[in-house]
Design a binder for these strands. Structure first.
Lengths: 216, 216
DNA sequence: CCTACCGATCGGTAGG
DNA sequence: CCTACCGATCGGTAGG
């Protein structure tokens, strides 16, 4: 008869996951060793293999469980049935709040997911696509004219650029905080998107582009 | 008397550099082997060590020479003595044009520079800081009010987020091109920054932030 | 005594 | 849950 797992199994696993996220984010997946991870967790290297089959499964669990967190945030904001602009602002605010406390997970997601096997990578990327679709929908509600030009998704990716890039320059202990920057990002996005469809707003084919080409 | 180096030395070195950028960007610095690089270059592994002392010097040369290219673009736009908005738009346009043709170099810069020795990393980061300062100055010229709030540099980093993140979603063969997206980014930035200092623009302390906190 | 370049193998360490 | 190891592959260099 199977004895079942120790009641502390999930706790230990979670501790390993958190330490691994920190280590992989800091040193990179291939430059971080299982021996280092074992030492950081205060356990032997073979014991790590009691909780995870191999190094790649740890990477997958970091990325997959983090995507579940982000999807839960999306669902939570959508359940509030907000108007278009507060909903988009809420998504940005909630994501940046989450990012502040998940820096390691996010860095791993961005820099190491490509090292997963194709099937596992695709599984994580599928969840990422759901998040992008939710943001694109929210953007489309704010500026419905973007839909006709298929610009909702590109604008969503531009927004993700603004907030995801914060990992390279925003420090939790720095002069500016995530709470400071979330409204700035929201303002740039909302003001920026509102002006996007006007004449001279800079859309492909508008005059500003040709002026730049001429000044080359 | 020193005979000097072969006339093809610099050509060979440049070819290795380009191939290494492609390989490191694709597989990551630590997951790419010198044997693979040698094979991709069509030379023996020992011959690589004739052109570069070790693997890390290749990484440094990729990042450092790429930063020189970006600094040259900044200098070129500044030499045009444009008005504030055309100058900022020009910087964005030129950088995205460059990015389109330097995807590998840019990915290496973003994901692998942290693996350099501290002194070499700091050298590259110093050049990055010059680029950021140039963009922050251009942003400040467009919206001088940002200076008092020390927001020029954060807004510059938000802009770099928009354009640097394109590496994760813009494909040279995709539906949208860099040439399509540069004006969109410029429009979002210019419209966004213009509205940033107005009441209700979403700056730290503005009502929108408190509303979101209340709706939590 | 230089450079250019090879096949073979070095000392160490990776994941398991 | 440990010590002790493995097959393989790493970055870098030996002799010629």
């Amino acid at each position: 008869m199977a004895r079942g797992k120790s009641p502390t199994f999930e706790l230990q696993r979670g501790a390993i996951l958190q330490e691994a996220a920190r280590l992989f984010a800091d040193k990179g997946f291939h430059n971080a060793s299982m021996a280092e991870l074992a030492k950081a967790c205060g356990v032997s290297k073979p014991l790590l293999y009691h909780y995870y089959r191999d190094k790649e499964h740890i990477l997958f669990d970091i990325a997959d469980s983090y995507m579940d967190q982000l999807l839960a945030i999306v669902a939570g904001v959508e359940a509030q049935d907000l108007d278009a602009e507060p909903q988009l602002a809420g998504l940005v605010m909630r994501f940046m709040e989450e990012y502040e406390h998940s820096q390691s997970q996010h860095v791993v997601l961005v820099q190491d997911v490509k090292f997963l096997q194709a099937a596992q990578e695709e599984y994580v990327v599928g969840k990422q696509r759901k998040v992008v679709a939710a943001f694109a929908d929210a953007i489309e509600r704010v500026e419905p004219g973007l839909k006709a030009r298929n610009l909702a998704k590109p604008v969503a990716m531009i927004l993700f650029g603004m907030i995801n890039w914060t990992f390279t320059w925003l420090r939790a202990d720095g002069h500016f905080t995530y709470a400071d920057m979330a409204p700035v990002v929201t303002a740039i996005l909302l003001n920026g998107v509102r002006g996007l469809l006007k004449d001279g707003g800079g859309l492909p084919g508008a005059t500003s582009q040709q002026e730049l080409a001429a000044s080359r």
